[in-house]
C-alpha cells in the first residue's frame, strides 16, 4: 500500500471506485485536557471520495479527533489542512459553513422539533435571504424555502423516514434518532461528513440499514466520509482506509487488511479489555 500514499492523485479501491487527492490533512496533532493526553502527535489524511474510519478502544481519543476536525476542540499543537490550505483556528460554525457536517456520539438533535424541522436546520448554511429581504420580499423567501424543502424531502425519501416527518424527534426510538441526525447532516450537502459511532447501540438490522446508507451516501453523492466505529467487523466492510488509535496514539493506518494484520493493532484489541 506504499504506492497509495505516494500517489498524490489518489488510488483505485478494490471495488473499483476512484479516490481523489487529499481533502483534509491532520499534521502532528496534539490535544491535552489538563494532564490527560487525548491525542498525541497524530498525523493522517482523508482523501476525496473515500470512507475513512477511525477505530480504537474506548477512551483512545477518537471522538476528540473528530472534534478537532469539526472545530469543537482546538489542539495545542499541530496543523489542520483543508483543500490544500492550512486552516486557521476556527469555531465549529465556521467549519460547518466550509462544508463539513457531523453527527455526535451522544445524538445532538433539536429534541423539541420535528424530523422535518431538524433537517431544515441542516439547510441553514445554504439559506441566503437575510432578515430584511425576508421581511420585505416575501415571495423570494417563500421560493427559497420551498427549494430547501425539496432538498430535504429527497433526503427523507433516501433515508426512508417519510413516516416520521412530522414527529417530534424526542419521541423517536434511538435508532431512528440516529438516522434523523444523519439526515440533518446530509441536508447540508457536505463535502466531508463526520460520523461519531453511527451504529452504536443499534440492533443488527439497524446496523445493516445504517451501513447501507453510509455506502449509498458515498456512492450516490460522492461525499467523503470519516467515521468512528467500535465494531471491527463493520469497519472492515465499510471503509477504504483505517486509522487505529490507542491511548491517544496512532498505532496503525492502512487498508482494513493491512490494519488487521498489524500486530500492534491486534494487541490493542485483544490485549486490553474493551467492549
Amino acid at each position: 500500500m506504499k504506492d497509495m500514499k505516494d500517489n498524490a492523485e489518489g488510488y483505485t479501491t478494490p471495488d473499483g471506485r476512484q479516490i481523489g487527492g487529499v481533502l483534509m490533512e491532520m499534521k502532528n496533532i496534539t490535544l491535552r485536557f489538563g494532564g490527560v493526553m487525548a491525542i498525541q502527535d497524530i498525523s493522517f489524511d482523508i482523501r476525496e471520495g473515500e470512507i475513512r474510519a477511525i477505530i480504537g478502544p474506548n477512551g483512545a481519543g477518537k471522538s476528540s479527533m473528530l472534534n478537532v476536525i469539526s472545530g469543537f476542540y482546538h489542539p495545542q499543537e499541530g496543523e489542520v489542512w483543508f483543500r490544500g490550505a492550512r486552516r486557521p483556528t476556527m469555531r465549529p460554525y465556521e467549519v460547518a459553513r466550509q462544508g463539513v457536517a457531523r453527527t455526535f456520539q451522544n445524538i445532538a438533535l433539536f429534541k423539541g422539533m420535528t424530523t422535518l424541522d431538524n433537517m431544515m436546520t441542516g439547510r441553514l448554511t445554504h439559506m441566503k435571504s437575510g432578515m430584511f429581504s425576508q421581511a420585505l420580499w416575501w415571495g423570494r423567501a417563500e421560493r427559497e424555502e420551498s427549494e430547501h424543502r425539496e432538498q430535504v424531502e429527497k433526503i427523507i425519501d433516501f433515508l426512508e423516514i417519510q413516516h416520521i416527518r412530522k414527529t417530534p424527534v424526542g419521541r423517536l426510538p434511538y435508532g431512528l434518532q440516529k438516522r434523523v441526525e444523519l439526515g440533518r447532516a446530509l441536508a447540508a450537502e457536505p463535502e466531508l461528513l463526520l460520523l461519531d459511532e453511527p451504529m452504536a447501540g443499534m440492533n443488527v438490522e439497524e446496523k445493516e440499514d445504517m451501513s447501507r446508507f453510509i455506502l449509498d451516501v458515498n456512492d450516490e453523492f460522492g461525499t467523503t466520509i470519516a467515521l468512528i466505529e467500535h465494531d471491527m467487523g463493520v469497519v472492515m466492510d465499510l471503509s477504504d482506509r483505517v486509522v487505529v488509535m490507542d491511548y491517544g496514539k496512532k498505532i496503525g493506518d492502512g487498508t482494513p487488511d493491512e490494519v488487521r494484520a498489524n500486530p500492534e493493532v491486534i494487541d490493542a484489541y485483544l490485549g486490553v479489555a474493551h467492549d
Binding site: 469543537f72 460547518a96 441542516g122
Partner: peptide, 28 residues
Amino acid sequence: FSQYSKQGRALRAVADDHQAALSVGVSL
C-alpha cells in the same frame, strides 16, 4: 419571524441545543 426566517430558525436551534446548533453552522 422565528418560524419562517433563516435567523428565526437559527434562534430556535440555539434555544433547543447549543451543540447541535453549532454543528449546523449557527454562530452562538
